[in-house]
Every structure is written in structure tokens, then in C-alpha cells.
């Protein structure tokens, strides 16, 4: 095979590989991009109930309740403008507590309760997730205490 011919094959194979990669990426983006929403966004956007997203804000004071089996916890996440009820089954992060900034990932149930599959609270008492800080700033409730 002539070198020129070979280079052509090489380029074609490269294009094919990248084409496949791009197609895979686009197909995966369709379903797997997880957007961040503040509680206000949740009511403003009217999201479909099967779509996964991240909900972040502060754990509302006096909203944390344990179920009878001790494993399901319900609480409300607030950006101090609106609040969304959340249910989570599992062990919560060690520093999860009322008033703390938190990010949860899951989807909105038909009854308006956010079913969290995971709760991310950083292992640091003073930490404020940057998304949460921004959401609070947007709702005009940021006091600049944390971070």
C-alpha cells in the first residue's frame, strides 16, 4: 500500500473513531446531564417528575424528622424564599444537620416530595456548597457567613 493511501485510511479510521465518540457523547448528554436547582427554581421551572436533578440549599430549621424504622429521614430544603420537602432513605452524612448547606440528588415525586438518592454534605462544619451559596445570593438571602 502506498504511504498516501495509508494516510488516507489512517485519517478515515480516526474520523470514524471520533465520530463514534461524539455520537456516544451526544446520546449520553441527552439523558445524563444533571442540572442544579434551588427550591425557587423547582417551582419556577415545573420540571418533569422522572428527570433527575440536584437540589441544594439549607436544611430548614426544625424540619428534620426520622421515620419509624429509623432509616428514612424527611426534611425541607430551603433557599429562604421557598422550600421543598425531601425524603431520603439511608445513612446521612455525619455532619448533616439543620441550618447546614446541603446538596441532594434525586427526582421529584408526583406528590411534590423530592426523593433523594444521595445527600452530599461535605465533611466540614463551615463548608457551604458553592451552588448553594449562589442560590442563596440569587434569592437575596446571602449573609456571607460561611465559605
Amino acid at each position: 500500500m502506498r504511504p498516501k493511501r495509508r494516510r488516507l485510511y489512517f485519517v478515515l479510521a480516526g474520523m470514524a473513531a471520533l465520530g463514534i465518540a461524539v455520537a456516544l457523547v451526544l446520546a449520553a448528554f441527552e439523558d445524563n446531564l444533571v442540572f442544579f436547582s434551588s427550591p425557587t427554581d423547582v417551582y419556577a421551572r415545573d420540571l418533569p417528575s422522572d428527570r433527575k436533578f440536584r437540589l441544594g440549599g439549607l436544611v430548614e430549621e426544625q424540619s428534620v424528622k426520622k421515620s419509624n424504622d429509623g432509616l428514612t429521614t424527611t426534611f425541607r430544603i430551603t433557599d429562604l424564599t421557598s422550600a421543598v420537602p425531601v425524603a431520603y432513605t439511608g445513612i446521612l452524612p455525619d455532619l448533616f444537620r439543620e441550618g447546614q448547606g446541603v446538596v441532594t440528588e434525586g427526582h421529584l415525586g408526583p406528590d411534590g416530595v423530592f426523593i433523594a438518592e444521595s445527600v452530599l454534605a461535605k465533611h466540614d462544619e463551615n463548608y457551604m456548597p458553592p451552588e448553594v451559596a449562589e442560590a442563596l445570593k440569587k434569592s437575596g438571602q446571602w449573609k456571607g457567613a460561611a465559605q
Binding site: L24, A28, F29, V34, E131
Partner: peptide, 18 residues
């Protein structure tokens, strides 16, 4: 300024087939 996360499902769907 839009916040998104690209989680493991994305990578499973793109990386594994390759």
C-alpha cells in the same frame, strides 16, 4: 452560569462502548 453535573451514567454510556 448554569450548574450541571456529569455523573457516572454518562461515562458508563460513552466510555464502556469504546
Amino acid at each position: 452560569g448554569e450548574k450541571v453535573t456529569v455523573g457516572p451514567p454518562f461515562f458508563t454510556a460513552t466510555f464502556v462502548p469504546l
